[in-house]
Simulated scan of single mutants.
Amino acid sequence: MTTQTELGWSTEQSNSASVDLDTRPTSDIVGILLAADAGVAAAVAAVATAITAATDLIVETISSGGVVHYVGSGTSGRMGVLDAVELWPTFRVDDSRVRAHLAGGAGAMTQAVEGAEDDVEAGAALVRAAGDRDLIIGLAASGRTPFVGGALAEARARGLGTVLVSTNPSAPLAELADVAILPDTGPEVLTGSTRLKSATAQKMVLNAMSTASMVRLGKTYSNLMIDMVPSNAKLRARSLRMLRQGSGASEDAAAAALDAAQGSVRVALVSLLAGVDATVAGRALESNPPDAHRPGDPSGIRTAVADLKGTR
């Protein structure tokens, strides 16, 4: 049997393409690294069915008022933190809906905390504090991190939904997951350095899951980020461009609608599409809130406009 000290899983194996890496010129080293990365997308695409299943769990969790918890350590955990914190500026979704837990706490984001990933009890404790409708997503390149294992085991004991994201196709923790997402990225260019292909794969998985979930939850209209937070000049300009793209309105009309809607692209868009003021548009949206189960219109924008125009 392979032991922890033998490190027998795929990301810990030697990559034959890079055994002489330190003897190569810079151009060769860069080429080897980029060539290795080129195969990551295919590895992630091969597990699209599992990503879809996990995405549906996220949608149902948030729709029912639950919280999605990313749980990880080291690079894997940092990928979870990165994904979670980007949801607010992009979709106005904060940690009341998606929350990241990094072994060793927030300080471990910038400096390694020794032994944190081996703390089974710490992983279990954070899940004991979770709600009854919550979903636990474990992030572990090796698929065996004790901190993540403690969280998944406690989630299973409580009957909570569980997902594992790992780049070890034989991940032992997969048995604790309702959905196991296991892209096979193979040996790293630097043996065991999962900040490379493995981290790229995990970031791709998280990008796909969270973005698809937000689309399903009505946080977009067409391919526009209608719940984006326009917190600076660049983002206000992006908001105006989205309004013009979504409605066909002029820049002046879009700016006036955005101001009247107090910065809400969602309200401004309905106002422009239906030809009503922001107050009326806001009321129509209140009657047609985002709903992942509304066919063809999860955002409620189309339905609100149809109601205002009397075409539904």
Rank of each mutant, 00 (worst) to 15 (best):
A35I: 05
I62M: 11
T26M: 14
T61A: 04
P169F: 15
A54W: 03
E175I: 12
H69W: 01
A180I: 02
A42N: 12
P169Y: 15
K197C: 06
I32P: 15
T110N: 09
L240D: 08
D95F: 06
L135A: 14
V229E: 10
A174P: 08
V163K: 10
D134E: 05
V30P: 03
I58F: 15
S64I: 00
I32F: 13
R24K: 03
A212V: 13
L269Y: 12
L176W: 00
K219W: 05
V98F: 04
G105Q: 07
L182T: 08
H69S: 06
L33Y: 09
L152E: 01
S166T: 15
A141F: 12
L164G: 11
V81A: 01
D95N: 06
R266Y: 08
L126G: 10
K234N: 11
H101F: 03
S27E: 14
G66R: 10
A233Y: 09
N288T: 08
P187M: 07
V67Q: 00
R216A: 11
D297E: 04
A45T: 15
S299K: 00
T3M: 03
Y221L: 10
T90D: 07
A122D: 03
P89I: 13
A257E: 09
G80V: 03
L21C: 08
V30E: 00
E86L: 12
D22W: 05
D307V: 15
Q262R: 12
D132K: 12
A257N: 12
P89C: 12
A53H: 03
A140W: 09
V47G: 01
S64W: 02
T90A: 08
A54E: 01
T191D: 09
D94E: 07
R236P: 11
A254E: 13
D307G: 03
G246F: 10
R244F: 08
K309F: 04
A151M: 08
S27T: 12
S16M: 08
A50L: 00
D94W: 04
D20A: 04
R283E: 13
G115V: 04
Q13E: 12
S166P: 13
D118I: 10
E154N: 02
S166R: 14
N15P: 06
M1F: 15
A43S: 15
A174H: 05
V59I: 09
A208C: 08
A36Q: 14
H293R: 12
G186P: 03
E188I: 00
T185M: 05
N207Y: 05
Q262M: 01
L135K: 11
A260W: 10
A103H: 06
G263D: 10
G107A: 07
I29M: 14
V205Y: 04
G107S: 09
T61G: 04
T191Y: 09
A36I: 09
V44N: 13
G159V: 02
D291I: 10
K197H: 07
A54R: 01
V276F: 07
A48M: 01
V215N: 12
L34Y: 06
P290E: 02
T52A: 09
S264Y: 02
L217G: 09
A260G: 14
L160Q: 07
R302D: 14
S198L: 03
V68M: 01
